[in-house]
Amino acid sequence: MLKRTVPLFITGIAGAILIVAYFSPATTNWGEVVTDWMNTLAAVAFILGGGNLLFVNLEKISSKRPGWAYALVTLLAFVLTLAFGVLKIGAVPNAQFPATPWAGDYESVRAPFGWVYEYVLSPLTATMFAMLAFYVASAAFRAFRAKNIEAILLLGTAFVILLGRTAAAAILTGWIPVDGPFAFLRLDTLAVNIMQYVSTAGTRAIMMGIALGIAATSLRLILGIDRSYLVSD
């Protein structure tokens, strides 16, 4: 009952309120309240995530599992950043309320928390993503093969986009007159048209398919047909 029936009931009611709220202006407010609760829970989920990270790493360190030193690094980074942020250590005083220290700005680069963002978090995340440029190059060299007509289309389009969206387009096809009958062969125009018409057609059909899938899944959840998220007794 508590483990299965109540959760099914909660899912059904929450989902139904939001759908009803859409169709009836009188119930818009219900939808707002319920969604606002969910937004608050999303913030609690960050705490859950942090707590989870804490426990996992503490366990790793205490049992001296392989790589526990890295777990210690993670833990230290976590605790320090959290202290800087939640306790607003060294926060820049709020000019409008200088007498209220807890109203201070902890995100300013002059505060330790902001400093961590600027010089640790920001370069780390940015570089992590920049690494993908290398892997995508390596993958292109090894995996992009013109095996059949489908692969040739994929490859050809990639070429047009890669060349058409840089100055290479002007170098290679800049000589074709813009207002002539062959203007569409200019790489930059070709890239724009592929994006706007051909690739949009493909994406649009994919989107419509996904939309149907999501609507079906949502209904299954709300009606209690899909119960995979429940714990087994």
């Binding site: 440029a133 995508v136 190059a137 292109a140 060299f141 090894r142 995996a143 992009f144 093969r145 013109a146 095996k147 490859l155 990639a158 070429f159 890669l162 060349l163 969206r165 840089t166 100055a167 290479a168």
Partner: peptide, 20 residues
């Protein structure tokens, strides 16, 4: 940098296909 890197990408794909 975008221009040069895109040209490199095109070259890599072509070379990969030559091998293939």
């Amino acid at each position: 940098p975008q221009l040069v890197a895109h040209l490199l990408m095109v070259t890599l794909i072509v070379l990969g296909n030559i091998v293939y």
